[in-house]
Design a protein around this nucleic acid. Structure first.
Lengths: 189, 189
DNA sequence: TGTACATCAGTGAACGCGCGTTCACTGATGTAC
DNA sequence: TGTACATCAGTGAACGCGCGTTCACTGATGTAC
Protein backbone atom coordinates (compact mmCIF):
# COMPACT_ATOMS: atom_id res chain seq x y z
CA UNK A 1 0.00 0.00 0.00
CA UNK A 2 2.87 2.37 -0.53
CA UNK A 3 1.75 5.89 -1.48
CA UNK A 4 3.46 8.24 -3.91
CA UNK A 5 5.85 10.85 -2.54
CA UNK A 6 3.30 13.54 -3.21
CA UNK A 7 0.52 11.67 -1.44
CA UNK A 8 2.80 11.02 1.52
CA UNK A 9 3.69 14.71 1.73
CA UNK A 10 -0.03 15.54 1.67
CA UNK A 11 -0.68 13.06 4.45
CA UNK A 12 2.07 14.59 6.55
CA UNK A 13 0.58 18.03 6.02
CA UNK A 14 -2.88 16.76 6.95
CA UNK A 15 -1.53 15.33 10.21
CA UNK A 16 0.16 18.61 11.17
CA UNK A 17 -3.01 20.54 10.29
CA UNK A 18 -5.21 18.19 12.32
CA UNK A 19 -2.73 18.48 15.19
CA UNK A 20 -2.69 22.25 15.09
CA UNK A 21 -6.45 22.53 15.47
CA UNK A 22 -6.92 19.67 17.93
CA UNK A 23 -4.13 20.77 20.23
CA UNK A 24 -5.59 24.28 20.36
CA UNK A 25 -9.07 22.91 20.99
CA UNK A 26 -8.37 20.25 23.61
CA UNK A 27 -4.85 20.96 24.82
CA UNK A 28 -1.66 19.09 23.98
CA UNK A 29 -1.65 16.51 26.78
CA UNK A 30 -5.32 15.67 26.26
CA UNK A 31 -4.91 14.99 22.53
CA UNK A 32 -3.65 11.50 21.69
CA UNK A 33 -1.85 10.40 18.54
CA UNK A 34 -4.75 8.10 17.69
CA UNK A 35 -7.06 11.16 17.77
CA UNK A 36 -4.74 13.04 15.43
CA UNK A 37 -4.37 10.20 12.98
CA UNK A 38 -8.10 9.50 12.93
CA UNK A 39 -8.72 13.21 12.27
CA UNK A 40 -6.27 12.92 9.37
CA UNK A 41 -8.16 9.85 8.13
CA UNK A 42 -5.66 7.17 9.03
CA UNK A 43 -4.87 4.55 11.66
CA UNK A 44 -2.37 5.51 14.32
CA UNK A 45 0.33 3.01 13.33
CA UNK A 46 1.54 5.14 10.44
CA UNK A 47 2.39 8.13 12.61
CA UNK A 48 6.05 7.21 12.98
CA UNK A 49 6.55 7.02 9.21
CA UNK A 50 6.27 10.83 9.33
CA UNK A 51 7.46 11.93 12.78
CA UNK A 52 10.07 10.91 15.36
CA UNK A 53 7.81 11.53 18.32
CA UNK A 54 4.69 13.29 19.55
CA UNK A 55 6.86 16.24 20.54
CA UNK A 56 7.90 16.75 16.93
CA UNK A 57 4.33 17.08 15.70
CA UNK A 58 3.60 19.37 18.64
CA UNK A 59 6.43 21.66 17.59
CA UNK A 60 5.48 21.58 13.90
CA UNK A 61 1.82 22.19 14.64
CA UNK A 62 2.67 25.13 16.89
CA UNK A 63 4.85 26.54 14.13
CA UNK A 64 2.08 26.06 11.56
CA UNK A 65 -0.60 27.63 13.75
CA UNK A 66 1.63 30.62 14.47
CA UNK A 67 2.44 31.02 10.77
CA UNK A 68 -1.24 30.99 9.86
CA UNK A 69 -1.98 33.54 12.55
CA UNK A 70 0.89 35.77 11.48
CA UNK A 71 -0.13 35.46 7.81
CA UNK A 72 -3.70 36.46 8.64
CA UNK A 73 -2.41 39.38 10.67
CA UNK A 74 -0.14 40.49 7.82
CA UNK A 75 -3.07 40.28 5.38
CA UNK A 76 -5.28 42.44 7.58
CA UNK A 77 -2.51 44.98 8.15
CA UNK A 78 -1.84 45.13 4.41
CA UNK A 79 -5.50 45.74 3.58
CA UNK A 80 -5.29 49.19 5.16
CA UNK A 81 -1.96 50.81 6.01
CA UNK A 82 -0.91 52.07 9.43
CA UNK A 83 -3.39 52.60 12.24
CA UNK A 84 -6.49 51.71 10.28
CA UNK A 85 -5.24 48.22 9.44
CA UNK A 86 -3.94 47.78 12.97
CA UNK A 87 -7.33 48.70 14.41
CA UNK A 88 -8.95 46.10 12.18
CA UNK A 89 -6.45 43.46 13.27
CA UNK A 90 -7.01 44.27 16.94
CA UNK A 91 -10.77 44.13 16.42
CA UNK A 92 -10.48 40.70 14.85
CA UNK A 93 -8.21 39.34 17.57
CA UNK A 94 -10.46 40.68 20.32
CA UNK A 95 -13.70 39.58 18.64
CA UNK A 96 -16.19 37.16 20.16
CA UNK A 97 -15.64 35.01 17.08
CA UNK A 98 -11.95 34.58 17.84
CA UNK A 99 -12.74 34.01 21.52
CA UNK A 100 -15.17 31.23 20.58
CA UNK A 101 -12.82 29.63 18.05
CA UNK A 102 -9.82 28.44 20.05
CA UNK A 103 -9.25 25.63 17.52
CA UNK A 104 -8.70 28.09 14.68
CA UNK A 105 -7.31 31.01 16.62
CA UNK A 106 -4.07 32.31 18.06
CA UNK A 107 -2.02 29.42 19.50
CA UNK A 108 -0.47 31.73 22.08
CA UNK A 109 -3.92 32.47 23.48
CA UNK A 110 -4.94 28.79 23.43
CA UNK A 111 -1.71 27.08 24.45
CA UNK A 112 0.54 29.52 26.35
CA UNK A 113 0.30 27.38 29.48
CA UNK A 114 1.15 24.18 27.62
CA UNK A 115 3.99 25.98 25.84
CA UNK A 116 5.51 27.23 29.10
CA UNK A 117 5.70 23.59 30.22
CA UNK A 118 6.72 22.34 26.77
CA UNK A 119 10.00 21.09 25.35
CA UNK A 120 12.82 23.39 24.29
CA UNK A 121 11.93 23.20 20.63
CA UNK A 122 8.26 23.92 21.28
CA UNK A 123 9.19 27.04 23.25
CA UNK A 124 11.61 28.02 20.49
CA UNK A 125 8.80 27.76 17.91
CA UNK A 126 6.53 29.81 20.18
CA UNK A 127 9.18 32.48 20.58
CA UNK A 128 9.84 32.80 16.85
CA UNK A 129 6.13 33.14 16.12
CA UNK A 130 5.67 35.65 18.91
CA UNK A 131 8.55 37.77 17.61
CA UNK A 132 7.04 37.87 14.12
CA UNK A 133 3.73 38.98 15.62
CA UNK A 134 5.46 41.73 17.60
CA UNK A 135 7.39 42.95 14.55
CA UNK A 136 4.24 43.11 12.42
CA UNK A 137 2.32 45.13 14.98
CA UNK A 138 5.28 47.38 15.73
CA UNK A 139 5.59 48.03 12.00
CA UNK A 140 2.00 49.30 11.87
CA UNK A 141 2.58 51.78 14.71
CA UNK A 142 3.55 54.95 12.89
CA UNK A 143 4.98 58.05 14.52
CA UNK A 144 7.20 56.12 16.92
CA UNK A 145 10.87 55.14 16.86
CA UNK A 146 11.35 51.42 16.09
CA UNK A 147 12.38 50.78 19.69
CA UNK A 148 9.34 52.60 21.07
CA UNK A 149 7.04 50.85 18.61
CA UNK A 150 8.50 47.47 19.65
CA UNK A 151 7.80 48.20 23.31
CA UNK A 152 4.33 49.49 22.55
CA UNK A 153 3.61 46.34 20.54
CA UNK A 154 4.69 44.12 23.46
CA UNK A 155 2.18 45.88 25.68
CA UNK A 156 -0.61 45.65 23.14
CA UNK A 157 -0.03 41.95 22.56
CA UNK A 158 0.04 41.23 26.30
CA UNK A 159 -3.39 42.80 26.59
CA UNK A 160 -4.74 40.99 23.54
CA UNK A 161 -3.52 37.55 24.65
CA UNK A 162 -4.55 38.14 28.25
CA UNK A 163 -8.03 39.30 27.30
CA UNK A 164 -8.78 36.31 25.05
CA UNK A 165 -7.18 33.83 27.45
CA UNK A 166 -9.15 35.13 30.40
CA UNK A 167 -12.41 35.57 28.52
CA UNK A 168 -12.18 31.87 27.57
CA UNK A 169 -11.38 30.67 31.09
CA UNK A 170 -14.42 32.16 32.79
CA UNK A 171 -17.99 30.92 32.42
CA UNK A 172 -19.90 34.22 32.38
CA UNK A 173 -20.48 35.26 28.74
CA UNK A 174 -21.33 38.85 29.67
CA UNK A 175 -18.15 39.25 31.68
CA UNK A 176 -16.16 37.69 28.83
CA UNK A 177 -17.71 40.15 26.41
CA UNK A 178 -16.90 43.03 28.77
CA UNK A 179 -13.25 41.92 28.95
CA UNK A 180 -12.95 41.89 25.16
CA UNK A 181 -14.81 45.19 24.83
CA UNK A 182 -12.57 46.95 27.32
CA UNK A 183 -9.42 45.62 25.65
CA UNK A 184 -10.68 46.88 22.28
CA UNK A 185 -11.46 50.25 23.83
CA UNK A 186 -7.94 50.50 25.21
CA UNK A 187 -6.09 49.40 22.10
CA UNK A 188 -8.09 50.79 19.18
CA UNK A 189 -7.16 54.43 18.62
CA UNK B 1 -4.74 2.97 61.18
CA UNK B 2 -7.70 5.26 61.49
CA UNK B 3 -6.70 8.91 62.07
CA UNK B 4 -8.50 11.41 64.27
CA UNK B 5 -10.96 13.79 62.67
CA UNK B 6 -8.49 16.63 63.07
CA UNK B 7 -5.65 14.67 61.46
CA UNK B 8 -7.91 13.66 58.60
CA UNK B 9 -8.90 17.29 58.03
CA UNK B 10 -5.22 18.25 57.99
CA UNK B 11 -4.49 15.51 55.47
CA UNK B 12 -7.28 16.74 53.25
CA UNK B 13 -5.89 20.27 53.43
CA UNK B 14 -2.39 19.03 52.61
CA UNK B 15 -3.70 17.23 49.52
CA UNK B 16 -5.48 20.35 48.23
CA UNK B 17 -2.37 22.46 48.92
CA UNK B 18 -0.11 19.99 47.12
CA UNK B 19 -2.58 19.92 44.24
CA UNK B 20 -2.75 23.68 43.97
CA UNK B 21 1.02 24.03 43.54
CA UNK B 22 1.59 20.96 41.40
CA UNK B 23 -1.26 21.74 39.01
CA UNK B 24 0.10 25.26 38.53
CA UNK B 25 3.62 23.95 38.01
CA UNK B 26 3.00 21.02 35.66
CA UNK B 27 -0.55 21.50 34.41
CA UNK B 28 -3.67 19.64 35.45
CA UNK B 29 -3.61 16.80 32.92
CA UNK B 30 0.08 16.11 33.51
CA UNK B 31 -0.31 15.79 37.28
CA UNK B 32 -1.47 12.36 38.46
CA UNK B 33 -3.23 11.53 41.70
CA UNK B 34 -0.26 9.40 42.78
CA UNK B 35 1.95 12.50 42.39
CA UNK B 36 -0.40 14.53 44.55
CA UNK B 37 -0.71 11.94 47.26
CA UNK B 38 3.05 11.37 47.37
CA UNK B 39 3.56 15.13 47.66
CA UNK B 40 1.12 15.07 50.57
CA UNK B 41 3.09 12.19 52.10
CA UNK B 42 0.65 9.36 51.46
CA UNK B 43 -0.06 6.47 49.13
CA UNK B 44 -2.58 7.07 46.37
CA UNK B 45 -5.19 4.61 47.60
CA UNK B 46 -6.48 6.97 50.28
CA UNK B 47 -7.40 9.71 47.85
CA UNK B 48 -11.03 8.64 47.57
CA UNK B 49 -11.51 8.81 51.32
CA UNK B 50 -11.35 12.61 50.83
CA UNK B 51 -12.58 13.34 47.32
CA UNK B 52 -15.16 12.00 44.86
CA UNK B 53 -12.92 12.37 41.83
CA UNK B 54 -9.86 14.11 40.44
CA UNK B 55 -12.09 16.87 39.16
CA UNK B 56 -13.17 17.70 42.71
CA UNK B 57 -9.61 18.26 43.89
CA UNK B 58 -8.95 20.28 40.73
CA UNK B 59 -11.84 22.56 41.57
CA UNK B 60 -10.89 22.88 45.24
CA UNK B 61 -7.24 23.54 44.44
CA UNK B 62 -8.20 26.21 41.91
CA UNK B 63 -10.42 27.81 44.53
CA UNK B 64 -7.64 27.68 47.12
CA UNK B 65 -5.01 29.11 44.79
CA UNK B 66 -7.32 31.94 43.79
CA UNK B 67 -8.16 32.67 47.42
CA UNK B 68 -4.48 32.86 48.32
CA UNK B 69 -3.81 35.15 45.39
CA UNK B 70 -6.75 37.39 46.23
CA UNK B 71 -5.72 37.47 49.91
CA UNK B 72 -2.19 38.50 48.98
CA UNK B 73 -3.55 41.16 46.67
CA UNK B 74 -5.87 42.48 49.40
CA UNK B 75 -2.95 42.60 51.85
CA UNK B 76 -0.79 44.61 49.44
CA UNK B 77 -3.65 46.98 48.63
CA UNK B 78 -4.32 47.49 52.34
CA UNK B 79 -0.67 48.28 53.09
CA UNK B 80 -1.00 51.54 51.16
CA UNK B 81 -4.37 52.99 50.18
CA UNK B 82 -5.48 53.88 46.65
CA UNK B 83 -3.02 54.20 43.79
CA UNK B 84 0.13 53.60 45.85
CA UNK B 85 -1.00 50.16 47.01
CA UNK B 86 -2.29 49.34 43.56
CA UNK B 87 1.07 50.22 42.02
CA UNK B 88 2.78 47.89 44.49
CA UNK B 89 0.35 45.09 43.67
CA UNK B 90 0.89 45.56 39.93
CA UNK B 91 4.66 45.59 40.45
CA UNK B 92 4.49 42.31 42.36
CA UNK B 93 2.24 40.62 39.80
CA UNK B 94 4.46 41.75 36.93
CA UNK B 95 7.73 40.91 38.70
CA UNK B 96 10.30 38.42 37.42
CA UNK B 97 9.82 36.57 40.71
CA UNK B 98 6.14 35.96 40.00
CA UNK B 99 6.96 35.07 36.40
CA UNK B 100 9.46 32.45 37.59
CA UNK B 101 7.16 31.04 40.26
CA UNK B 102 4.20 29.56 38.41
CA UNK B 103 3.71 27.01 41.21
CA UNK B 104 3.10 29.71 43.80
CA UNK B 105 1.62 32.40 41.57
CA UNK B 106 -1.65 33.43 40.02
CA UNK B 107 -3.62 30.36 38.88
CA UNK B 108 -5.24 32.34 36.09
CA UNK B 109 -1.82 33.05 34.60
CA UNK B 110 -0.69 29.44 35.02
CA UNK B 111 -3.86 27.53 34.18
CA UNK B 112 -6.18 29.70 32.07
CA UNK B 113 -5.87 27.27 29.14
CA UNK B 114 -6.62 24.24 31.32
CA UNK B 115 -9.51 26.12 32.93
CA UNK B 116 -11.06 26.99 29.56
CA UNK B 117 -11.15 23.26 28.81
CA UNK B 118 -12.12 22.32 32.36
CA UNK B 119 -15.37 21.13 33.90
CA UNK B 120 -18.26 23.43 34.72
CA UNK B 121 -17.38 23.63 38.39
CA UNK B 122 -13.73 24.40 37.67
CA UNK B 123 -14.76 27.27 35.41
CA UNK B 124 -17.22 28.44 38.06
CA UNK B 125 -14.40 28.52 40.64
CA UNK B 126 -12.18 30.40 38.18
CA UNK B 127 -14.91 32.95 37.51
CA UNK B 128 -15.59 33.61 41.20
CA UNK B 129 -11.89 34.15 41.89
CA UNK B 130 -11.50 36.38 38.86
CA UNK B 131 -14.46 38.52 39.94
CA UNK B 132 -12.96 39.00 43.40
CA UNK B 133 -9.70 40.08 41.80
CA UNK B 134 -11.50 42.56 39.55
CA UNK B 135 -13.47 44.03 42.47
CA UNK B 136 -10.33 44.49 44.58
CA UNK B 137 -8.48 46.31 41.82
CA UNK B 138 -11.50 48.38 40.86
CA UNK B 139 -11.83 49.38 44.50
CA UNK B 140 -8.29 50.77 44.49
CA UNK B 141 -8.94 52.95 41.42
CA UNK B 142 -10.01 56.24 42.92
CA UNK B 143 -11.54 59.11 40.99
CA UNK B 144 -13.70 56.88 38.81
CA UNK B 145 -17.32 55.82 38.95
CA UNK B 146 -17.71 52.18 40.09
CA UNK B 147 -18.71 51.16 36.56
CA UNK B 148 -15.72 52.91 35.01
CA UNK B 149 -13.37 51.47 37.64
CA UNK B 150 -14.71 47.98 36.95
CA UNK B 151 -14.02 48.35 33.24
CA UNK B 152 -10.60 49.83 33.86
CA UNK B 153 -9.78 46.91 36.17
CA UNK B 154 -10.80 44.39 33.49
CA UNK B 155 -8.33 46.00 31.10
CA UNK B 156 -5.53 46.09 33.64
CA UNK B 157 -6.00 42.45 34.60
CA UNK B 158 -6.05 41.36 30.95
CA UNK B 159 -2.67 43.03 30.49
CA UNK B 160 -1.27 41.55 33.70
CA UNK B 161 -2.38 37.98 32.96
CA UNK B 162 -1.36 38.24 29.31
CA UNK B 163 2.09 39.60 30.13
CA UNK B 164 2.93 36.87 32.66
CA UNK B 165 1.39 34.11 30.53
CA UNK B 166 3.34 35.18 27.44
CA UNK B 167 6.59 35.89 29.28
CA UNK B 168 6.46 32.32 30.59
CA UNK B 169 5.71 30.74 27.22
CA UNK B 170 8.71 32.15 25.36
CA UNK B 171 12.32 31.07 25.85
CA UNK B 172 14.11 34.41 25.56
CA UNK B 173 14.66 35.84 29.06
CA UNK B 174 15.40 39.35 27.79
CA UNK B 175 12.21 39.44 25.77
CA UNK B 176 10.25 38.09 28.75
CA UNK B 177 11.73 40.84 30.91
CA UNK B 178 10.83 43.44 28.27
CA UNK B 179 7.22 42.21 28.22
CA UNK B 180 6.91 42.55 31.99
CA UNK B 181 8.67 45.92 32.00
CA UNK B 182 6.38 47.35 29.34
CA UNK B 183 3.27 46.09 31.14
CA UNK B 184 4.48 47.72 34.36
CA UNK B 185 5.15 50.94 32.49
CA UNK B 186 1.62 50.94 31.08
CA UNK B 187 -0.18 50.09 34.30
CA UNK B 188 1.77 51.84 37.06
CA UNK B 189 0.68 55.47 37.24
C1' DT C 1 9.79 0.91 -23.04
C1' DG C 2 9.48 -3.25 -20.22
C1' DT C 3 10.90 -6.14 -16.51
C1' DA C 4 12.71 -7.30 -11.77
C1' DC C 5 13.57 -5.78 -7.54
C1' DA C 6 13.98 -2.57 -3.62
C1' DT C 7 11.63 0.82 -1.12
C1' DC C 8 8.47 2.43 2.03
C1' DA C 9 3.45 4.58 3.30
C1' DG C 10 0.03 2.76 5.70
C1' DT C 11 -2.33 -1.19 8.49
C1' DG C 12 -3.48 -3.31 12.63
C1' DA C 13 -1.93 -5.91 16.50
C1' DA C 14 0.99 -5.70 20.27
C1' DC C 15 4.33 -3.65 23.87
C1' DG C 16 4.98 -1.71 28.62
C1' DC C 17 3.38 1.94 31.32
C1' DG C 18 0.86 5.12 34.17
C1' DC C 19 -3.59 6.80 34.52
C1' DG C 20 -8.13 7.27 37.52
C1' DT C 21 -10.67 4.36 40.26
C1' DT C 22 -11.97 0.33 43.33
C1' DC C 23 -11.44 -2.81 47.03
C1' DA C 24 -10.22 -5.97 50.95
C1' DC C 25 -7.85 -5.21 54.82
C1' DT C 26 -5.74 -3.01 59.20
C1' DG C 27 -5.98 -0.96 63.45
C1' DA C 28 -6.50 3.37 65.93
C1' DT C 29 -10.37 6.51 66.90
C1' DG C 30 -14.99 7.49 68.20
C1' DT C 31 -19.40 6.03 70.35
C1' DA C 32 -22.66 3.80 73.45
C1' DC C 33 -23.61 1.67 77.57
C1' DT D 1 -14.47 5.62 84.10
C1' DG D 2 -14.11 1.22 81.69
C1' DT D 3 -15.48 -1.97 78.21
C1' DA D 4 -17.30 -3.61 73.63
C1' DC D 5 -18.19 -2.49 69.26
C1' DA D 6 -18.69 0.32 65.05
C1' DT D 7 -16.44 3.50 62.21
C1' DC D 8 -13.32 4.89 58.91
C1' DA D 9 -8.36 7.03 57.44
C1' DG D 10 -4.89 5.09 55.23
C1' DT D 11 -2.41 0.95 52.82
C1' DG D 12 -1.20 -1.52 48.91
C1' DA D 13 -2.68 -4.53 45.32
C1' DA D 14 -5.58 -4.76 41.54
C1' DC D 15 -8.98 -3.18 37.75
C1' DG D 16 -9.66 -1.72 32.85
C1' DC D 17 -8.19 1.69 29.79
C1' DG D 18 -5.76 4.66 26.67
C1' DC D 19 -1.35 6.43 26.15
C1' DG D 20 3.18 6.73 23.10
C1' DT D 21 5.80 3.64 20.66
C1' DT D 22 7.22 -0.64 18.00
C1' DC D 23 6.78 -4.11 14.61
C1' DA D 24 5.66 -7.67 11.03
C1' DC D 25 3.28 -7.36 7.10
C1' DT D 26 1.14 -5.66 2.53
C1' DG D 27 1.31 -4.04 -1.91
C1' DA D 28 1.72 0.07 -4.79
C1' DT D 29 5.53 3.19 -6.03
C1' DG D 30 10.13 4.17 -7.42
C1' DT D 31 14.58 2.63 -9.39
C1' DA D 32 17.92 0.21 -12.22
C1' DC D 33 18.98 -2.28 -16.16
Amino acid sequence: MRKSREEAAQTRRRIVEAASTRFREHGIEATGLADLMAAAGMTHGGFYKHFDSKDQVVMESVTLALEEMVDGLARTLKAAPGRRGLNMAIGEYLSTDHCNDAAGGCPLAALAGDMARGSDRVRRAATLGFQKMVDLIAGALDGLTPAAAHKEALGMISTMIGAVTTARAIDDPELSAAILRQARKQLIR
